[in-house]
């Protein structure tokens, strides 16, 4: 008997509060295998929290999060995390390690860790994939520009060829040209690897470049979800206001 495969990532009525502040108020969302889902929403609406609850960095209070139909926390933590790669908002590169050791960090851990020379070769290959030359490998993160740090972060996220990649605000702090380059790279890499991607952003150029589907998070709930080519015609007042950056509408703008 063959049924429909479970979504790669499934949120079911997920809730999370910090003290009296309810950040997630019942998020329900499916991300099928191989799909690139972009979650948009204003600052402080819980986008990053939703992403970190999947990885267990922030534990959720209620509801369930499933990966391939299995609730998170049911599998061995190392095996679970080995399926993920993540590009952090600020890069989150380790200051004390040179670039190649940042990229190869995961490859040097665990039972199947690579030798130093193999890990370095693989790191350089990944750096080339994101458009960086081999001579960057021995520099420290502080010696790189913001755009280069994002590329190194991207190389680190894909180094172990994960099945699921998370991108947290991938273009924040970059100029429009560099943002375009990073967006294109993300799209190319996600398609090439066949990975399932979940991106958090409020940059609409990233949405159009990266997304297969878009979900709008507001007030702790998913307000709208649909294919990226339908965002202009969604008919959802929240989506419309966010898309066109209007101060007037159902989303209250703090002046």
């Amino acid at each position: 008997m063959t049924g429909t495969p479970p979504p790669r990532i499934a949120f079911r009525e997920v809730t999370k509060s910090f003290g009296p502040k309810e950040v997630l108020r019942g998020v329900t969302l499916d991300i099928p295998v191989g799909e690139s889902m972009v979650i948009i929403g204003g600052s402080g609406t819980g986008k990053s929290v939703a992403l970190k609850t999947v990885l267990g960095i922030i534990p959720h209070d209620g509801g369930t999060i499933e990966i391939d139909g299995v609730a998170v926390g049911r599998t061995r933590r190392d095996d679970f995390l080995s399926r993920f790669g993540m590009l952090f908002q600020g890069g989150a590169l380790f200051d004390s390690l040179p670039v190649w050791q940042n990229v190869a960090f995961r490859l040097r851990q665990g039972r199947d860790r690579l030798s130093k020379s193999d890990a370095r070769d693989l790191a350089i290959e990944k750096l080339r994939r994101v458009g960086l030359k081999a001579d960057v490998a021995d520099l420290f993160p502080a010696e790189l520009s913001g755009g280069m740090q994002k590329r190194v972060g991207l190389a680190r996220a894909i180094a172990a060829e994960p099945e699921i990649i998370f991108f947290d605000e991938p273009t924040t702090g970059l100029d429009p040209i560099m943002s375009g380059v990073i967006n294109e790279l993300i799209r190319e890499i996600v398609v090439e690897m066949g990975a399932t991607a979940m991106t958090i952003t409020h940059d609409m150029s990233s949405v159009r470049a990266i997304a297969d589907k878009v979900a709008m998070l507001h007030d702790g709930k998913i307000r709208w979800t649909g294919p990226v080519d339908q965002i202009e015609t969604s008919g959802d007042p929240y989506m419309d206001q966010f898309l066109h950056g209007r101060a007037e509408g159902p989303i209250e703008a703090v002046r």
Binding site: I57, L81, S82, A92, F105, Q109, R156
Partner: peptide
């Protein structure tokens, strides 16, 4: 960076 360590197993 501490969160990044967690995601890198």
């Amino acid at each position: 960076q501490i969160d990044a360590l967690t995601t890198l197993s």
